[in-house]
Simulated scan of single mutants.
Amino acid sequence: MTGKWNVSAVLLDMDGTLLDTEKVYFNSLVAALNARGYADDAIALCHAMVGLPGPACEAMLLDRYGNNFPLAEINRAFLVNRDRFMEAGLPLKPGTLELLDGLAAADCPMAIVTSSSRRSAERNLSLAGIRSRFDTILTLDDVARGKPSPDLYLLAARRLGLAPQVCIAVEDSNHGVTASHAAGAITIMVPDMAPPTDETRAKCAAVLPDLNAVLQTLRERSSLLHRPGK
C-alpha cells in the first residue's frame, strides 16, 4: 500500500500490542499443561492460540486432547500462574506511551479492540496504568464472534461513526491481522509472539518493529499526525 493514508481514527489491539501480556498468558498455559502431563506439543499448541479469544483456545484444547481433557482444572491452574506472573506489575510494550501521547496530542479518535473479555480488559488496562486514556473499548463480550472474525473491528468503527477504511488497526498477531483486514481497516502489524506469515504480510499496509515506528509511520504517511512544531 503506497502513498498517503486517509486516516480518521486508530484502533488498537491490547494484549501483545499495547501490553506485554501475551508472554504471560503463553507461559501460564504451558506451565499448567506441563504440570498435568500434557507436555508433548504444549508449546506449539499455545503458539497457535496467540491472538484468539478464550473460547476458541478452549475448543482447540478439547479438539487436541479429547472430551476427557480436564479443562476446568487447567483453567484454574492457568489463572493461578497468570496472577503470579502479574504480581510484579503489567509492563507496556515499547512505544506504548509515546504512541498514545502522540494520538492524544493530535485529538485522534482511538479505541481498544481486544479478544479479551470486558473484565480482563478493564483489569489489564488499569494494572498497566492506561485505562483512563480510552473512552471506547470493544471486547469479546460485545460481539458473537471474536477474532479472526472482523466483527470487533466493524463494531469499533461504527462506535466511532466512521468507515473501517479510514481507520488504522494496529495488531500483533496473525489472527488479529486477519480480523482487521477483513473489516477493511488499514492494518499495521507489530509482531509479538509469532512472526507474520506470508499471507499475513500481504494483508498489512506495514509490518513494523515497535510502536515508536508506528507513530513515526503515521506522521509520515497520514495527515492525522504531525511532527511537533511542524
Rank of each mutant, 00 (worst) to 15 (best):
A169G: 02
E171H: 04
R131A: 05
S149C: 05
R158P: 07
L160G: 03
Q165W: 02
I130K: 05
V177Y: 01
S132P: 02
L140G: 15
G146Y: 11
D142V: 00
H181E: 14
P150A: 03
F134S: 02
S149T: 07
L160K: 06
H175A: 15
I168K: 12
F134N: 11
V166A: 07
L155V: 14
T178F: 04
V143P: 05
R145F: 09
T136N: 12
H181P: 06
A144T: 12
G161F: 06
P150G: 07
D141R: 11
L152V: 03
N174M: 15
L140R: 15
S173L: 11
T178G: 12
T139P: 14
L140W: 14
H175P: 05
L140Y: 15
T139R: 09
I130P: 14
A163T: 05
L154C: 02
I130H: 10
A182G: 10
I137M: 08
C167R: 00
R133Y: 06
P148F: 05
A157T: 09
I130T: 09
H175V: 05
S180D: 08
D172E: 15
H181C: 09
I168F: 08
S173T: 10
N174R: 11
Q165Y: 07
D135G: 00
D172W: 10
A157P: 07
L140E: 13
I168N: 11
D141M: 13
P164T: 05
R131E: 15
A182N: 11
R131M: 04
G161Y: 10
N174H: 11
V143K: 12
L162M: 07
S149L: 01
R131F: 08
C167Q: 03
L155D: 07
E171V: 03
V177M: 12
C167P: 08
P150M: 07
S132I: 02
I168L: 12
K147N: 09
A144Q: 14
Y153P: 03
L140I: 14
E171C: 06
A179S: 05
A157Y: 00
R133V: 04
Y153R: 00
D151M: 04
P148I: 00
I137S: 05
A169Y: 00
F134E: 05
R131T: 13
D141K: 13
T139K: 00
K147V: 07
A169Q: 13
A183Q: 04
